[in-house]
Amino acid sequence: MNPAAALHRPPRRPHAWAWLFGASQLAVIALWWGYGWRVGLPALLLTHLVLVWATLRPQSRLLSPVLTRLPTSERVVWLTIDDGPSDDTPALLDLLDAHGARATFFVVGARAQVRPAQLREIVRRGHGIGNHSHDHPSATFWALSPRAMRAQIATAQATLAELAGMPPRWFRAVVGMANPFVAVALKEHGLARVAWSARGFDAVLRDPARVVARIERDLAPGAIVLLHEGAAHGRNAETLALLLRRLDALGYRCVLPEAMEALPEIAFTRHSRPSTGSGQAGLRPGGNPVA
């Protein structure tokens, strides 16, 4: 099997969660009937808390498959950049070119409509694009109804396919939170959900050194790195520049998952658990690079 195809896993049974949740509620009824509210009520709360946890945790696989890292022992990472296109996009593309790096831009459909040339430039330069919703409702995405969720994903998918000339294959939930209704829309459009294994909170932190130090703590072969563009503090390009320098120093390459087929077969291990250490080089606690 093509390794890249093995990574791309749209939901096959998008309603499985409903059957499992229904079975759990039947169990709760049985417990309540047999042992009273002192057992039944905690069981009811626990089953609902599990559903909430699965929605709010980006890496949870309970509601749909999600890719959190590339299963390889090679020193490669997948850079993913959310929230564009933006004023930062041209500078980010130039930085990636300068380091021979590839990234996937998880773009917002409505923002791509405003900046179609930037979207096409992303593709022209050999980077990937992903679906990141139509208009990025960050406060409410996790709680959208089935109809609203399907509209967010379908509208963005149609927009990006038209503007870029190809439909995205990857999806990232807004703020990473995917409620039970995401899976149906992903299956309809052949989208696979992507989370991350390393992040530095660059959407809110102004200091690039702090952001890169946070990312570096979680660097490992196959890490999926979460970055952003267009943040209000205006320092996303500086952050990417520093991160690319650190990755070069640590011997990491930035690849797209589609390029995994080019790696040696022995390096592609679905069940490998590489060390999370980042090697001898690193950042001091204060954020200063170690030579």
Score class of each variant (00 low, 15 high):
residue 50 V to Y: 11
residue 289 P to Y: 08
residue 291 A to T: 09
residue 20 L to W: 15
residue 248 D to E: 12
residue 243 L to H: 02
residue 150 R to C: 09
residue 26 L to Q: 06
residue 51 L to A: 04
residue 171 F to R: 06
residue 230 G to W: 01
residue 173 A to W: 04
residue 117 A to Q: 15
residue 207 D to W: 08
residue 159 T to R: 12
residue 183 A to W: 00
residue 260 M to G: 09
residue 119 L to V: 14
residue 56 L to S: 07
residue 171 F to N: 07
residue 287 G to V: 05
residue 12 R to G: 14
residue 164 A to S: 11
residue 141 F to A: 15
residue 251 G to M: 01
residue 67 L to P: 08
residue 103 A to F: 09
residue 126 G to E: 09
residue 175 V to I: 12
residue 67 L to R: 11
residue 47 T to S: 12
residue 115 R to A: 12
residue 247 L to C: 00
residue 61 R to K: 12
residue 118 Q to R: 14
residue 56 L to F: 15
residue 113 Q to T: 10
residue 169 R to A: 15
residue 287 G to W: 11
residue 94 D to E: 15
residue 54 A to Q: 04
residue 17 W to M: 04
residue 175 V to H: 12
residue 132 H to P: 05
residue 35 Y to L: 15
residue 199 R to E: 13
residue 217 R to G: 03
residue 209 A to F: 06
residue 134 H to C: 09
residue 241 A to H: 09
residue 195 A to K: 07
residue 290 V to N: 08
residue 46 L to D: 02
residue 44 L to A: 14
residue 212 V to I: 01
residue 216 E to S: 13
residue 247 L to W: 00
residue 9 R to T: 08
residue 281 A to C: 09
residue 139 A to D: 13
residue 190 G to Q: 05
residue 227 L to T: 04
residue 147 R to Y: 11
residue 231 A to Y: 02
residue 151 A to K: 14
residue 57 R to Y: 14
residue 1 M to K: 14
residue 211 V to T: 05
residue 276 T to E: 08
residue 5 A to P: 12
residue 120 R to C: 08
residue 116 P to I: 10
residue 109 G to H: 07
residue 125 R to K: 08
residue 101 A to H: 04
residue 217 R to A: 13
residue 251 G to A: 00
residue 79 L to E: 02
residue 232 A to G: 10
residue 230 G to L: 05
residue 257 P to V: 01
residue 6 A to V: 13
residue 235 R to V: 07
residue 154 A to S: 15
residue 104 T to I: 06
residue 214 R to A: 14
residue 277 G to S: 12
residue 89 T to F: 03
residue 46 L to E: 01
residue 73 S to T: 15
residue 22 G to W: 03
residue 39 V to C: 09
residue 275 S to K: 05
residue 228 H to Y: 06
residue 257 P to T: 00
residue 81 I to N: 05
residue 200 G to P: 07
residue 173 A to M: 04
residue 180 P to Y: 10
residue 252 Y to K: 00
residue 57 R to P: 05
residue 269 T to F: 07
residue 74 E to C: 01
residue 125 R to D: 06
residue 10 P to C: 04
residue 16 A to F: 06
residue 278 S to Y: 13
residue 179 N to M: 07
residue 190 G to E: 04
residue 30 A to N: 07
residue 114 V to M: 12
residue 238 E to Q: 14
residue 194 V to R: 05
residue 26 L to G: 08
residue 103 A to N: 08
residue 247 L to P: 00
residue 45 L to N: 03
residue 189 H to K: 12
residue 260 M to H: 11
residue 88 D to Q: 03
residue 197 S to E: 01
residue 1 M to N: 13
residue 102 R to D: 05
residue 236 N to M: 00
residue 64 S to F: 14
residue 155 T to W: 13
residue 82 D to A: 05
residue 23 A to V: 10
residue 173 A to K: 04
residue 115 R to Q: 13
residue 148 A to G: 07
residue 96 L to R: 05
residue 113 Q to M: 14
residue 117 A to L: 13
residue 251 G to T: 01
residue 97 D to H: 14
residue 70 L to T: 07
